[in-house]
């Protein structure tokens, strides 16, 4: 029998904090999958998504949301998208992925990313110090997303509400990323 037992643990382990009325909390229980579109497979990919998720494939840089299936599809690049399930209904996720398998190359990404939710009236003042994207409501509205860098860390930023954002960065540097956000919130 092995002497030690390994337990899985999320990188930010249910972190919650409020700084200057800005709520900062880790995002748990999400499933992320990378979808790569094969060369000349755009047409097939469109058909599969329309059938399975009942949505049109977004153009690069855009996102579609299915409230019914609790998922978001972020088109990261012309040949790549990120499928984001905001629940852990594994049978349903497996069913969706099985149906998309013939039209995309799919890789599981949940462990690679760590999510942080930032919300509050002063959220823009907090994020604009470290995010190079124009976050004004007119140019970055609800359900807009961007892949960018914050404090030199690769980040995906999604706007959920006017004053709520979800940020995803590499799980290996999650604590540094959290530190950068909290420092920025303290400096308002």
């Amino acid at each position: 029998m092995p002497k030690y037992k390994l337990k899985s643990n999320a990188p930010l382990a249910n972190h919650k904090n409020v700084i200057n009325k800005i709520k900062i909390s880790s995002i748990e229980k999400v499933e992320l999958f990378s979808l790569a579109i094969p060369i000349d497979g755009e047409k097939k990919a469109k058909t599969a998504l329309a059938k399975v998720i009942k949505c049109k494939i977004p153009s690069p840089g855009n996102c579609v949301v299915s409230v019914e299936q609790k998922l978001k599809l972020l088109r990261l690049a012309p040949e790549q998208a990120l499928l984001y399930f905001s629940n852990q209904n594994l049978p349903q996720i497996q069913k969706t992925l099985q149906a998309l398998k013939k039209s995309f190359y799919i890789t599981e990404q949940s462990d690679a990313w760590s999510g942080i939710k930032v919300s509050g009236q002063q959220v823009i003042a907090c994020l604009e110090r470290i995010c190079p994207i124009d976050l004004s409501y007119d140019s970055f509205g609800i359900n807009c997303f961007a892949r960018t860098s914050m404090e030199h860390l690769n980040t995906i930023i999604i706007r959920n509400k006017r004053t709520e954002f979800e940020l995803f960065s590499g799980s290996s540097s999650a604590k540094s990323f959290l530190h950068a956000i909290e420092t920025s919130a303290q400096n308002i």
Binding site: P60, G61, P132, I133, D134, S149
Partner: peptide, 10 residues
């Protein structure tokens, strides 16, 4: 050309 104006740091 696809994503619009972005900071050169990216």
């Amino acid at each position: 050309p696809i994503l619009g104006p972005r900071d050169a740091n990216e």
